[in-house]
């Protein structure tokens, strides 16, 4: 378990925060889609750490910096949101299996809904180095409203065509991020394309339904309540089809949080 020190923990809106944590240089380089279990180092209530996906990673000479974008959803994240600079956090990670980057696929589509922007931004940064032309990377961000769309500036700095959608149309076009799918995937070669997505369950479910007939592969990062983050408590089990098509239980924390969209048994979620 790592002890990190908070560099900043800034409010971006009433519920949204951007946190940076300084950690020892022994912290292993994370890959996009991986997460950490984090809680205040001094312990206390609530007991359990909270899973946060990694937004940005920077390696410096004698330390590393991890950044997170998160939203206050309950007691654990509320407690994190109140931590001041220099406060210590206890952390496990990097954990889980992140997004697979297949270098031979030249067309990549990134879809983020709400706080899904955090791992998608980290992925965009990684892909930035691989992309040759702007058209090879398309990024679609969706949120409820202008007030809830966060992290746009950073992701805009990367290579790629940007689309922004909000439920109420206060910024970008009006609608859901999945509304963009028909246009974006039209004429796509399933062998050359990979979609990466993270967002609310409803968005990912729609994505699964709409992509099924297109045969375009898609990796999604999903979430569930977790206690340990190590695959021991079995609290975050998810039903997945294995290679032989049989339904098996996987631990979201250890086997995921990224899965192939067609492997997930969506009716269970």
């Amino acid at each position: 378990m790592w002890t990190g020190s908070i560099i900043f923990n800034n409010k971006l809106g009433p519920q949204h925060l951007h946190m940076a944590v300084r950690l020892p240089s022994e912290f292993v380089n994370p890959s996009p889609g991986q997460f950490v279990m984090i809680r205040p180092a001094r312990g206390g209530e609530p007991l359990l750490s909270r899973p946060l996906s990694i937004y940005q990673f920077t390696r410096n000479q004698d330390h590393v910096i991890l950044e997170f974008l998160y939203r206050i959803v309950g007691q654990g994240t509320e407690l994190l949101s109140r931590l001041p600079s220099a406060a210590e956090v206890a952390m496990l990670g990097p954990l889980g299996n992140g997004f697979r980057i297949e270098k031979n696929r030249s067309h990549r589509i990134l879809l983020a809904g709400g706080m899904g922007v955090a791992p998608i931004t980290f992925l965009a940064q990684r892909l930035n180095d691989l992309v040759v032309t702007k058209a090879e990377l398309q990024i679609c961000l969706g949120a409820k409203s202008c007030a809830e769309i966060v992290g746009v500036e950073r992701i805009k700095g990367f290579q790629g065509l940007m689309n922004i959608v909000t439920d109420d149309g206060t910024i970008g076009s009006c609608g859901l991020v999945t509304d963009l799918l028909p246009d974006i995937t039209r004429g796509c070669d399933p062998c050359q394309t990979m979609i990466y997505a993270c967002g609310p369950m409803a968005m990912l479910r729609t994505l699964a339904e709409e992509l099924a007939p297109t045969r375009i592969p898609c990796q999604v990062s999903i979430e569930e309540r977790m206690a340990c983050g190590l695959g021991a408590c079995l609290g975050c089990a998810v039903d997945v089809h294995n290679r032989r098509g049989r339904r098996v239980k996987k631990s979201l924390c250890k086997d995921g949080p990224v899965f192939n969209i067609e492997d997930i048994c969506w009716e269970q979620l």
């Binding site: 609530p46 359990l48 569930e224 977790m226 206690a227 408590c233 609290g235 975050c236 339904r247």
Partner: peptide
Amino acid sequence: RSGNPGPRIMETPAGMLNAIGLQ
């Protein structure tokens, strides 16, 4: 055994509830 469907855990004051179902 595949255990119970989720959600299987919930944190509560000074503890947690689980219903893994012996997966």
